[in-house]
Design a protein around this nucleic acid. Structure first.
Lengths: 211, 211
DNA sequence: GTCTTCTTCAAACGACCGTTTGAAATGAAA
DNA sequence: TTTCATTTCAAACGGTCGTTTGAAGAAGAC
C-alpha cells in the first residue's frame, strides 16, 4: 500500500464530515465531497465501496471520538450530580452553535440523523446503539422513579436527545428573519440554561406523577 | 372552465397531502403523486405551475384547516387553563400517531418541516408565521414570567413545537427494533401525559429561575 | 358545421444522482 | 529494467428528478 492512498482516504473523510455536518448525508453529493477533497470522482467507490460505505466509516470514527469526550462518556456523567450531568449533556449537544471544530461537526451529523434516520444510520445503530442510547437512558433514569418502565425511559431518552437538534440543524435559519437570533456565547449559555431547566423540571415533574 | 379540471386539481391535492405527510415534500416525487392521483405527469405543472406551487397550495389549505380546529386555534386555547391548553396542544400534535384522518396528515406535514424547513415552507411562513407561531408563543408565555424576553419566548415556542414531531415523523421507525413500541391509544395517552408534564414542569422551572 | 379555449396526454429534455469502466500513472519488488 | 499490484483519472452509464413540448381531445360560442 502506497502512502498517497491513505492521504486520499483522509481527505475524503475530512471533506465528508464537513459536508455531512452542514447538509446531512442525503443533502451532500459525492461530487461535492470529491470536489472539496480535491480527489477523483471514483475515489469514494474505490476506497469506501460507495457513499454508504464512506458514511459508515465516518459514523464509526465520529462515534468513537464522541464517546471519548465529555458529555457523552457514560462514566464521566455518572461522576457528576444528575443536574450537572444533564447540563453537561445539553451543553455538549449545543456545542455546534458556538464552535466549528471537529467535535461540533460530529454532533451536528448526529443531529441530522435525529430528525429522520437514514438507512445507513439505522444499520449502524443496530450494532452500536447499546453504548449510544444507554448513556442517555441512564441519564434520564436518574430523574425517573426506579420502577419506571423501560419504555418510558426510552421515550424520555429519545426526547432528551432531540431537544437541541432543532437548533443545531437549523443554525443558519435562526440567524435570519423572522427569528434574527444572534448566536453568540451569551445566547448559547442562556439556551443551555433554558433547555437544561426545561428538562430537569420536566423529568422531575414526570417522575412525581408517575412514580 | 370545464368540470373535469377541478376534479383533476382535487385528485392531485389529495394524493399530494397523503404523500407529503408520509415522506415529506422532498421525499415525494411528482411521479409518485400523479400515479397516486391517476392523472398525467404534466398536470401538476399545468394546474399549479410546478411542484412548489402545488406545495404552496397544499400548505395554504392545511394551514387554514388546522387553525380552524382545536389545539391550534388561539382563541380556544386562551379559554382553557394554561395546563389544559398545553395538554390540548400536545395531544393535537400527537394525533397522527393514532389517526390517519385529514387533520393528522396536515399535522404530519408540518412535523416534517419542523425538522428542516424547505424553501417553499420558509417562504410560506414569511407571510403566515404571525398566526402560526404566535399561538405557540402565547401559550408558552403563560408559563413564563411577564418580563421574559421575546427571544426566550420564541426559543421556548420553537422548542415546544418540536417536542412531538420526532415521534410523529418516525412513527413507523419506533414500531421496529430496537424500540418495538406498540403505538396504540394507551401509549399515546401516556406519551401525551409525559410530554405535557415535561413541558409544564420545564417551563415553570425555567420561569422560577429567570423571572 | 367552424372556431376558440381549456384540458389531457405521451414523449422527451436537461440536470443531477451514485456508480462503473478501462486505461493511464505510480512505485515498490524482482 | 522489467514486473506487477495499487492507485488515480476522465469519461461514461443507467437511473431519478422536475419540467417542457407539441399534438390530440373535449366542450361551449358562433
Amino acid at each position: 500500500m502506497t502512502r498517497p492512498a491513505e492521504y486520499t482516504r483522509q481527505s475524503i473523510i475530512k471533506a465528508a464530515v464537513t459536508l455531512f455536518a452542514e447538509k446531512g448525508f442525503e443533502g451532500s453529493s459525492v461530487r461535492d465531497i470529491v470536489t472539496k477533497a480535491r480527489v477523483n470522482q471514483a475515489a469514494i467507490n474505490y476506497h469506501f465501496k460507495g457513499k454508504d460505505g464512506l458514511y459508515l466509516e465516518v459514523l464509526k470514527t465520529a462515534f468513537e471520538k464522541l464517546t471519548e469526550n465529555a458529555g457523552f462518556d457514560a462514566e464521566k456523567l455518572k461522576s457528576l450530580s444528575r443536574e450537572e450531568a444533564l447540563r453537561s449533556f445539553v451543553y455538549q449537544q449545543l456545542r455546534p452553535l458556538l464552535f466549528r471544530d471537529e467535535m461540533s461537526r460530529y454532533i451536528r451529523m448526529f443531529a441530522w440523523e435525529s430528525a429522520h434516520p437514514s438507512k445507513v444510520f439505522r444499520k449502524f445503530m443496530a450494532t452500536n446503539s447499546v453504548s449510544y442510547l444507554t448513556a442517555a437512558v441512564d441519564l434520564v433514569r436518574r430523574f425517573l422513579p426506579p420502577n419506571a418502565q423501560q419504555r418510558t425511559a426510552l421515550c424520555a431518552a429519545i426526547w432528551l436527545m432531540g431537544q437541541c437538534s432543532i437548533f443545531v440543524r437549523n443554525r443558519e435559519l435562526f440567524a435570519q428573519e423572522p427569528f434574527s437570533i444572534t448566536i453568540d456565547e451569551p445566547f448559547v449559555d442562556e439556551l443551555t440554561e433554558l433547555i437544561t431547566r426545561l428538562a430537569i423540571g420536566g423529568l422531575l415533574q414526570a417522575s412525581e406523577s408517575r412514580g
